[in-house]
Design a protein around this nucleic acid. Structure first.
Lengths: 137, 137
DNA sequence: CGGCATCCAAACGGATACTG
DNA sequence: CAGTATCCGTTTGGATGCCG
């Protein structure tokens, strides 16, 4: 692999190896991928069930994201040739392993979101990263 | 968001609130954040040095991303009041901890990118996730 | 039920020009 | 040197309508 050399030390960046991470982040960084994966982590679900489990999603984004995940081998699509069409989506092992990796990120987020929120609020007062926020008054 | 209710199984899922993860992903999921963080992981750098370290970035995106990172407390900006202006950016502990979390994702990406690429190539042949690719002939 | 196709608004992001 | 401001193309994603 040779991608991630040392973690602890001052590792000299990884512009050359960043393609993998960029690729993964482009995939899970979108608005719905992780929600779908986490929903499917419970077990196989039908199209409409997935949609019902994710309140704000549109058919367009649901279908598109499902296709991307299927294309990457994160899940398998099974269509049953019945009179009322039934299609089920189920995570693969790869998809579940992604879930675990994302859980690590989630753990970090849960551990630091307070700190981040506090920093952001403080910056709001001092006007550090101000771009075009109305700032109350 | 309450989209991810309760999940049974091996991975027990994250807390019912996925807002943290979405927030973090929205921040690191953009095009340049990780590149900048990884560049700064080596040590403090000046504006132009960061720019030089990241070939394709524009001033607009560099400045914007730096401000976002500063606002979230991932880095600190130090401006020296000299005749030729000098500004240095340095990662905070929070920023370095993010780096570690991302490195974990990178490790996953490095471990599975081959598998993903293979799945994608296979799907290309079978025409699974096809949307509007010309597909050669 | 499970999509796909189209339209359209907002956000993202690059190129350029200008400033302190 | 270290930005800011503006213009503009590209991408994202929601809303709608149709179809097997």
């Amino acid at each position: 692999m040779a991608a991630v050399r040392q973690i602890a030390g001052p590792c000299q960046a990884w512009p050359e190896d960043s393609a993998f991470i960029r690729e993964v982040l482009d995939r899970i960084g979108d608005k719905w991928t992780m929600l779908i994966v986490s929903t499917l982590d419970a077990g196989p679900l039908r199209y409409s069930d997935v949609q019902a489990s994710i309140p704000g999603i549109s058919q367009r984004m649901l279908t598109q994201t499902l296709k991307h995940l299927e294309r990457d081998g994160m899940l398998v699509r099974t269509a049953y040739p019945e009179v009322p069409p039934r299609v089920e989506y189920e995570l693969t092992e790869l998809g579940r392993s992604l879930m675990e990796a994302v859980m690590a990120m989630a753990a970090w987020a849960a551990a630091h979101h307070r700190e981040i929120a506090a920093n952001r609020a403080a910056s709001e007062l001092t006007g550090v990263g101000r771009s075009k926020a109305p700032a109350g008054s």
